[in-house]
Design a protein around this nucleic acid. Structure first.
Lengths: 189, 189
DNA sequence: GCCAATACCGGAGGCTCCTCCGTTTCACTC
DNA sequence: GAGTGAAACGGAGGAGCCTCCGGTATTGGC
């Protein structure tokens, strides 16, 4: 049986994942792993122990980003009212996620190849998070109750169509604002 | 416009491909490219000029093997009579090809990934070579005339099922001999 | 609070990668 | 067959990869 990671090991792994996501996104697939280790304040040995090769790190970093995004949904719901507000906040997080994934696209392609399992899995995770947010909104009346999370997800997919210009972040924000307004339309309050 | 390769460049490229096929087959995917360059009597610079990265070399080496095999068919027909004899010789060459491909399997997998174009293309090349041999045999009466090259190809596919034991080469030979006898059965002479 | 036992960490070192550019060879002309 | 430019060669060198193991932190038992 595999016992839980020691506290320091966990800390380092977490830090590596965060740093890696940023690095792959900003510097491309070919960023030296030694750079990532250094930025995480860790030796290469540690990096290679957790992630035996480049692809393992890329994949883990991506999974980590998705997880962070999805975990944020319930947290936001407990700190923001009404749920429509939580949704707005979550979509802000989504913008950040989209930015990272945009940058990581090349890196991701080099990993997944034929492995569509990964993409399918993360997609359904995101849909699930969305479902939580939408049903909370339906319950407190801040969002219409007839919206399908799959549909919303598809609509959010439009984000990938935004060009690489300097104002992509604004474009994405506008797109999402529009979407939220649509989800509010006809809500009880 | 891209002019034809200079004579020495062509010689080196050819040598590299031959050496690479052997090396990948015998030493695995991870054989240092410097080793291949050295065995081909060439500097690494030359290797990298012709094949900018490992995958390019692997793919080219594989294509080269297939081409060599297929080009052998018409040559054998002009030097061996009857055509059944040419077919036997060609199948000997196929055994060698199978051995190389067996060894290169790992390397190949790492290249092709989702690219099924490559495998499909080489398959049809081999079928074409087979068709030439079979129709020559039908014409000179040394082989039956109702054999479909696609079928023969499929039967030859059994070669990949031969285990990795020490006598695989003999097993393959017997399998192919059986196949040839089948193709002779009922031939005019 | 202390002490082993048990992970985990770090980075030097050996190896491979791949580029870069001075040198050599080729192909073509006169 | 000498001259010339274009193309190819080679291998040194700088950079990244990954392993290995002496040193260090953490944990669980006392």
């Amino acid at each position: 049986m595999t016992r839980p990671l020691r506290a320091d090991a966990l800390r380092n792994k977490e830090k590596l994942l965060t740093v890696a996501a940023t690095a792959f996104s900003e510097d491309g697939v070919d960023v030296p792993l030694e750079t990532i280790a250094a930025r995480a304040g860790v030796g290469v040995g540690t990096l290679y122990r957790h992630f035996p090769h480049r692809n393992a790190l890329i994949e883990a970093a991506y999974r980590h980003e998705v997880e962070r995004l999805c975990d944020a949904a319930p947290e936001l719901l407990s700190s923001c009212v009404p749920a429509a507000e939580a949704l707005r906040e979550w979509m802000h997080a989504f913008v950040h996620y989209a930015g990272t994934k945009k940058g990581m696209a090349d890196a991701l392609r080099s990993v997944v190849g034929s492995d569509t399992t990964l993409l399918g899995h993360t997609r359904s995770q995101i849909v699930a998070a969305l479902r939580v947010l939408l049903s909370a909104g339906a319950q407190d009346g801040s969002l219409r109750s007839d919206a399908d999370p799959e549909d919303v997800m598809r609509a959010m997919g439009g984000v990938w169509n935004v060009g690489p210009g300097p104002d992509w972040e604004d474009q994405v924000r506008r797109l999402l604002a529009l979407l939220i307004d649509g989800l509010r339309y006809g809500a009880p309050r």
